[in-house]
C-alpha cells in the first residue's frame, strides 16, 4: 500500500489531525497528552503503593487515579497507531541510544518534561493544539515558556553533542 511505502507530507498529516482535533473538541475537549500521562502515573503508583497513595494529597485533590479517564486512551491509541504504522511500513525495529551521554540527556529530559507538565498544568500538545487556538491566555504564556526553554535546550544540546 502506497501509504506505508512513502513518507507522508507533515503539512497534510497535521491538517488531517487538526480536523480530527476539532471533532474531538466538540465531543470531549481538545487533544492533550499530559493529563493522560499524569493519570497513568497515578495508576502505576497506585499499583505499587496500594492505598498508601491516598496519603499523598496531590492524588486526592488534583488527580484521583481513575482508569476511566478518557485522556489516557489518547496516549494508548497513539502507541497503537505508531506500532501499526511502523510494522506495516517495515520500520519497526528495536534500537537503543548508543552513548552514555544520550542516556543521561534522555533521563534528565524526561524528568524535566514530567515536572514541567505538572507545574504548568499543560503540555506542548495542549499548548499548540488546544489552548492557543482557543485564544486562551495560558496558551500565549505557555508558548513563551516553551520557546525560551527550547532555545536554552538547543544551546545545551549544541554544547553537549558538539552539533
Amino acid at each position: 500500500m502506497e501509504f506505508f511505502r512513502k513518507t507522508l507530507d507533515p503539512v497534510i498529516a497535521l491538517a488531517a489531525i487538526a480536523i480530527l482535533d476539532i471533532f474531538l473538541f466538540l465531543q470531549l475537549g481538545a487533544w492533550t497528552v499530559g493529563g493522560g500521562e499524569t493519570m497513568m502515573t497515578g495508576l502505576i503508583a497506585e499499583f505499587f503503593m496500594g492505598d498508601e497513595i491516598r496519603r499523598i494529597p496531590f492524588w486526592q485533590l488534583v488527580f484521583e487515579p481513575d482508569a476511566g479517564y478518557w485522556k489516557i486512551y489518547i496516549s494508548l491509541g497513539m502507541l497503537f497507531g505508531a506500532v501499526l504504522g511502523a510494522v506495516m511500513s517495515g520500520e519497526f525495529f528495536i534500537r537503543y541510544p548508543r552513548r552514555l551521554s544520550e542516556w543521561i540527556m534522555i533521563t534528565i529530559g524526561g524528568l524535566l518534561m514530567g515536572i514541567g507538565i505538572r507545574l504548568a498544568f499543560v503540555c506542548n500538545v495542549s499548548t499548540f493544539f488546544g489552548l492557543t487556538p482557543e485564544l486562551n491566555m495560558g496558551g500565549y504564556l505557555a508558548i513563551s515558556g516553551i520557546v525560551a526553554g527550547a532555545w536554552v535546550g538547543s544551546l545545551l544540546y549544541k554544547r553537549l553533542l558538539g552539533v
Partner: peptide, 30 residues
C-alpha cells in the same frame, strides 16, 4: 507557573529528543 513549567518542559524535550507525542510514537517504533 505556565511559563516556568513549559520553560522546563522545553529544555527537557530538546534534551530527550522527543515531546509528549513523539515519545509515544517513537516507543511504538521500537
Amino acid at each position: 507557573n505556565q511559563i516556568v513549567g513549559l520553560f522546563l518542559f522545553g529544555i527537557g524535550m530538546v534534551l530527550a529528543g522527543a515531546c509528549t507525542v513523539s515519545t509515544w510514537v517513537k516507543a511504538g517504533e521500537g
